[in-house]
């Protein structure tokens, strides 16, 4: 078996899938190279989970085709299933069972005999720091432990392709880092990982390539570097003491940075992109210049930060509309009626 094959792990063309009126997938194309982490980045309701479920053979697409390691997800579902593993967004182990029981159960279903299954379960629990909790019901686990047992259950058979649907949503920074370390280890052993996330920094940290998803379509695709440089590598966030000074601050910033400045809903806040491709200065130097200009103009800044563009800002740049989830949009439409 050639685990480090250089071909494509996933090839999807024009996938569509609707739920009643909702078009969850509206012609999604994906090409995921084998042996890498591939990030699907998008807001709530973008269609990430639907895409993962189609690719993992759980849901039939209405249209389009998808192949996993060359096998069609509809007509050769069984072949696909023997090579993939899914850690769903929600419970993917049995909460009433203990950690050990869950892993032994799944190992047995994968064909291991009882002693081998027990051995495998114990080894995984140890590697994931869950030995102490192995005889506790999973419903009593913390969020981070939950995620770890979910992932452990998915690599019982070291799959060739692992789907991780929002593996760090709701985790604290430390648990998040632990999951990231695990993902890095998994991919370094030759497993391809398709990861969905709402966080640009997560995709940036882990993924070799990213597809930005909106309304069931891929609206941008590339390496994290490519995506960020199309958006600008950073954003300055400012909060003023006096809301009356905001128009003046906006002008000063625009001159200093030579980019459009956004006025946030908060009457004292402004944001602007820095580090755009083609600028002569890097992001931090531009930010420093802006801060200096503001001080000289007598504008008092209470809070200042320079960070990566948020998913919101990426969206704004790519689509000219903010990253509103489909559900929120529905609510707004409803309200407008």
């Amino acid at each position: 078996m050639n685990r480090r094959s250089t071909g494509l792990a996933i090839e999807a063309e024009g996938l569509t899938r609707s739920f009643g009126e909702t078009r969850a997938l509206a012609g999604m194309d994906l090409r995921v190279p084998a042996g890498t982490v591939y990030g699907l980045l998008g807001p709530n309701g973008a269609g990430k989970t639907t895409a993962v479920r189609v690719l993992a053979t759980l849901l039939r697409p209405d249209g389009g085709t998808a192949r996993v390691f060359g096998h069609d997800v509809v007509t050769e579902a069984d072949k696909v299933r023997s090579r993939v593993s899914l850690t769903g967004q929600y419970a993917s182990v049995d909460e009433d069972l203990t950690g050990t029981e869950n892993l032994v159960l799944l190992a047995r279903l994968l064909g291991l005999r009882k002693p081998a299954a027990r051995e495998r379960a114990a080894a995984l629990l140890a590697a994931f720091g869950l030995t102490e909790a192995s005889d506790r019901q999973v419903k009593k686990y913390s969020g981070g432990m939950r995620r770890r047992i979910d992932i452990a259950a998915s690599i019982l058979n070291t799959p060739d392709l692992l789907f991780l649907d929002e593996p760090t949503t709701g985790l604290d920074p430390r648990s998040r880092n632990q999951v990231w370390e695990i993902v890095r280890a998994v991919v370094s052993h030759g497993t391809t990982v398709l990861l969905t996330t709402q966080y640009l920094d997560e995709a940036d940290q882990l993924a070799g390539r990213i597809a930005v998803v909106d309304h069931g379509r891929v609206i941008a695709e590339g390496t994290p570097g490519e995506l960020k440089s199309s958006v600008g590598s950073g954003t300055v966030h400012l909060r003023l003491r006096d809301p009356g000074q905001r128009p003046q601050a906006e002008m000063v910033l625009r001159e200093a940075l030579n980019v459009p400045v956004q006025l946030a809903a908060d009457p004292v806040a402004l944001t602007a992109r820095v580090g755009e491709a083609g600028s002569d200065l890097d992001a931090s130097a531009q930010a420093a210049r802006a801060l200096g200009d503001l001080a000289r103009a007598g504008i008092v800044v209470d809070d200042f930060s320079l960070g990566q563009p948020s998913l919101d800002e990426v969206f704004l740049a790519l689509t000219d509309h903010p990253a509103v989830s489909a559900d929120e949009r529905d609510d707004e439409l409803e309200a407008a009626r």
Binding site: M1, G111, A127, G129, L130, G144, T158, Q178, A185
Partner: peptide, 19 residues
């Protein structure tokens, strides 16, 4: 506190024979 260790993970990630 759990600290993922590359060595421990490596032992469980080595692809075994598929049963």
């Amino acid at each position: 506190v759990y600290v993922p260790s590359a060595e421990a993970l490596a032992t469980v990630l080595a692809p075994g024979a598929r049963p």
